[in-house]
């Protein structure tokens, strides 16, 4: 009897233990390096100097808010694009399978490849420039690569993450029974009222999940920023990597501060966004 109760936990060990050990060690490493332990240069001692040094840097805060902005924009735009499409494809019709397959296609394209395709597309002699010139809209090619507003990065994020949002939202939209929507209609709810009072509340969890996933991915982005991002500012991940490799003496410690702040941004930023979404949906449902 006793052994039987223990069995599931023993079975959990091989899968769960590596995950828990790895994650706690890695996060623990980042946290302790940020406060002066596991020092590769000099003695281990508790110190808040890296935190003070980093948090007083203007550049750090520019990077922080830049990543936050990209994450908010990317997750909101992806979800806003995916939602109506998921609603449209709720009931199958001739061609709907093809469209969902097309929407999901970017999931199979590696981030770096996506970044390359995009840069190649908008580059000085990429398709877009050539097309615009041939159409007579512009006289000669314009420089669109690495634009300083990070429009390119957001486009890439949306391109890559909209399918993810679509996948998450589609599941919950399809789970709403026809009867439920018919009932709402029968009781006098027009299409807007059905959206506000039935569909949105019932898909709120999926909306939040999509927002959280995309926010975290975009906040920690490195590849898109490095390949297609503005050259005058860095993302949190890029900044962390640069600080770690450039600042020889205390690079690790300073990078650790950035890492902890990035984790905090991912966690609290995504949760705040999800909370706001809940508030809006509740308010609209009233």
């Amino acid at each position: 009897m006793k052994r039987q109760r223990l069995t599931p936990y023993l079975l959990l060990l091989p899968g769960l233990f590596p995950i828990v050990a790895f994650m706690s060690l890695v996060v623990g490493m980042a946290v302790s390096q940020s406060i002066g332990y596991f020092n590769f240069a000099g003695d281990d001692r508790f110190s808040l100097e890296f935190w003070e040094g980093m948090l007083s840097q203007n550049q750090f805060w520019r990077v922080f808010w830049y990543s936050a902005r990209i994450a908010i924009l990317s997750s909101l735009i992806s979800v806003m694009l995916a939602y109506p499409v998921a609603l449209w494809l709720r009931r199958p019709f001739p061609g709907s399978d093809l469209i969902s397959a097309m929407i999901k296609a970017p999931l199979l394209v590696h981030g770096l490849v996506a970044a390359f395709l995009f840069v190649n597309f908008i580059s000085f002699q990429g398709f877009l420039n050539v097309a615009l010139v041939k159409l007579g809209l512009i006289d000669r090619p314009i420089r669109m690569q690495n634009d300083s507003y990070a429009i390119g990065v957001v486009i890439l994020q949306v391109w890559k993450n909209m399918p993810l949002a679509f996948l998450v939202i589609t599941g919950s939209v399809r789970a709403i029974g026809d009867d439920i929507l018919d009932a709402a209609r029968d009781l006098g709810a027009g299409s807007l009222a059905r959206l506000r009072r039935v569909i949105l509340p019932l898909t709120l969890r999926a909306l939040q999940a999509a927002l959280i996933l995309i926010f975290i991915g975009a906040a920690g982005d490195w590849s898109f920023q490095v390949v297609a991002g503005p050259t005058n500012i860095q993302s949190m991940a890029q900044f962390m990597h640069r600080v770690q490799s450039d600042n020889a003496a205390h690079g690790w410690n300073e990078a650790a501060v950035v890492a902890v702040m990035l984790m905090a941004l991912s966690l609290f930023g995504s949760l705040t966004l999800a909370g706001l979404m809940q508030l809006i949906v509740r308010r609209m449902g009233r």
Binding site: G177, D179, I180, D182, A183, A184, R185, D186, L187, G188, A189, G190, A193, V198, P201, L202
Partner: peptide, 20 residues
């Protein structure tokens, strides 16, 4: 007249209650 404007109310086989 669309369903939402008709003076009918339906009791569904599946009940179709709003779960939220």
């Amino acid at each position: 007249v669309p369903p939402e404007k008709r003076d009918t109310a339906m009791c569904f086989q599946s009940y179709a209650l709003f779960p939220h």
